[in-house]
Design a protein around this nucleic acid. Structure first.
Length: 488
RNA sequence: GGCCCUAUCGUCCAGCGGUAAGGACAUCGGCCUCUCACGCCGAAAACCGGAGUUCGAUUCUCCGUAGGGUCACCA
């Protein structure tokens, strides 16, 4: 196989939050397809949004992908022939390319203010941003003059105005979209950073990506990318859009942390094995054949073909994941299993953090287990005397469901997951609601520990960890929601 | 709302013009068993609707319908 035809794929996560199960899903299919074709799989960090990109997030994404065994051939830290692999380090490259388009007349400077654009958007009728092309006809001289005078501007790509855009999705065939739907896209922001569209296309080309395997949500903007390839005079890669993972709710909406744990860290901390999770993800859309559902990544590589991928949005149903995980656990040898169990929570370091909070509460060494068991169980039994306190007499079940979900939602908004911030958040919330302290703190205590007597609340929440804390609050909300009469 | 994508048991997948529509999870029943779990056996459970093409449509085409996605100086 020659250099020019070698398959090259990439996973391009944006480091703006916890490592997402959807990222792992797409990475898996990229990985498997690449291995099948003896190609190269690249990790590229898309951190052009300076207000949202976070370094710890980037690190967590890499660790999670490694945990799952989805290792990349080229990427940040690791390097490779087409680096750097972090978009924030490629700013000049995008600017050079954007200028090329400006010189070719494929792009132009837009001096419109964000305010004006917001105004236009209000009145748009299905035509993208509703941008009216005001700056498209400014003469190059005039444009240059304004720029030299220091006026802020963005760069926009000239889109076609007539006809329709057509591209081939390898899984669905031709996808067409009328050009009237697409207006001139901003490719360079006024801060000099590129938007996703520009950075993505430039990088994919420069990194010699042959197959763009990404989520279905990108289909509507693919015509923009195609236009960019045309404007540069480059050859397009193959387009492959995978279906979107869905929530288990009635409508099967795109998977979201509101309704489903989506962080890979959660799955690891909740005791799922990497091979089981990967296997489960593979089942979402891929059919191994011969009615076989349990298989390893190498086995999947062996059988893989995009013809075996179905397009209906698969519901991420943890029940089946649990069953699969059980299968993997049962086949582990005892030593390995023991190691794995100790690795997650039953380790000395974790116990050490627990000790200071329970020592005063212990009379007997065995009390340690009584006082801390909720740090280790995967789910709690609220059908107890204490459990009834999930809903205070002065509040009704609905209010509590809302409260628990609200808190779960706010956990992510914290600048950092610290004891002080947790306390601050709960106190503020209590004040906003004008509830009594005990109407909030006690139910939360029950929600996370199942008991009315527990180690200190905020410390416990912190020790539980962000992911399990959120899951537990959701669990409590579900319990109350399903059995409102239980609390009468 | 405009545009785009999708459509088989509750859920995940088979089926690629002729089948008693198959497997798995979950559910229910039974066996095993000191309990539970595992394991094994069994039950119940689906082709969104309407036209067209065809000798024959779950399968091909079109139209509905439904669900999803997307419409940012976010990715």
């Amino acid at each position: 196989m020659t250099e020019s035809t070698q398959v090259r794929t990439r996973i391009a996560p944006s480091p703006t939050g916890d490592p997402h199960v959807g990222t792992a899903y797409i990475a898996l299919f990229n990985y498997v397809f690449t291995k099948k074709n003896r190609g190269k799989f690249i990790l590229r960090i898309e951190d052009t949004d300076r207000t949202r990109a976070r370094h710890d997030s980037e690190k967590a994404i890499m660790e999670s992908l490694q945990w799952l065994g989805l290792n990349w051939d080229e990427g940040p830290e690791k390097g490779g022939p087409y680096g750097p692999y972090r978009q924030s380090e490629r700013k000049e490259i995008y600017q050079e390319h954007a200028i090329k388009l400006l010189e070719k007349g494929e792009a132009y400077r837009c001096f419109c203010t964000p305010e004006r654009l917001a105004e236009l958007r209000k009145h748009n009728k299905g035509r993208g941003t509703g941008y009216d092309g005001k700056c498209r006809n400014i003469s190059p001289e005039e444009s240059q003059k304004k720029a030299d005078a220091g006026e802020a501007f963005t760069l926009r790509l000239k889109m076609e105005t007539q006809g329709e855009s057509v591209f081939t999705d390898e899984l669905r065939g031709q996808v067409t979209r009328p050009y009237s739907e697409l207006d001139d896209q901003i490719i360079l922001k006024s801060d000099g950073y590129p938007t996703y569209h520009l950075a993505n296309v430039v990088d994919d080309h420069l990194m010699k990506i042959t197959h763009v395997i990404r989520a279905e949500e990108w289909i509507p903007s693919t015509p923009k990318h195609v236009r960019l390839y045309e404007a540069f005079g480059w050859q397009q890669p193959k387009w492959i859009h995978m279906p979107l993972l869905r929530n288990k709710d009635k409508n099967k909406t795109k998977i979201s942390k509101r309704k489903n744990p989506v962080s890979l860290i959660y799955y690891k901390e909740a005791g799922f094995l990497a091979p089981a999770l990967v296997n489960f993800l593979a089942l979402m859309g891929f059919n191994y054949g011969e009615d076989i559902e349990k298989f390893t990544v190498p086995e999947m590589v062996e059988k893989f073909s995009f013809e075996k991928v179905s397009l209906g949005g698969p519901v991420f149903d943890v029940d089946k994941l649990k069953w699969l995980n059980g299968l993997y656990i049962r086949e582990m040898d005892e030593e390995k299993l023991l190691d794995s169990i100790q690795e997650i929570w039953l380790n000395r370091e974790y116990f050490k953090q627990l000790i200071p909070h329970v020592q005063k509460r212990m009379n007997n060494l065995n009390d340690f287990i009584d006082k801390t068991h909720f740090f280790f169980t995967s789910s709690l039994d609220y059908k107890t005397k204490d459990g009834k306190r999930l809903v205070p007499k002065s509040r009704d079940p609905k209010e509590m469901v809302k409260l628990f979900n609200e808190i779960a939602g706010k956990i992510d908004g914290l600048e950092s997951f610290s004891i002080a911030n947790l306390e601050q958040m709960l106190r503020t919330l209590t004040e906003e609601k004008e509830w009594k302290i005990k109407e909030v703190f006690m139910p939360v205590r029950i929600a996370i520990s199942g008991q009315k007597a527990s180690p200190p609340l905020f410390e416990s929440m912190h020790l539980l960890g962000k992911e399990r804390l959120r899951a537990r609050l959701r669990e409590a909300a579900n319990f109350v929601e399903k059995r409102p009469t239980y609390f009468r």
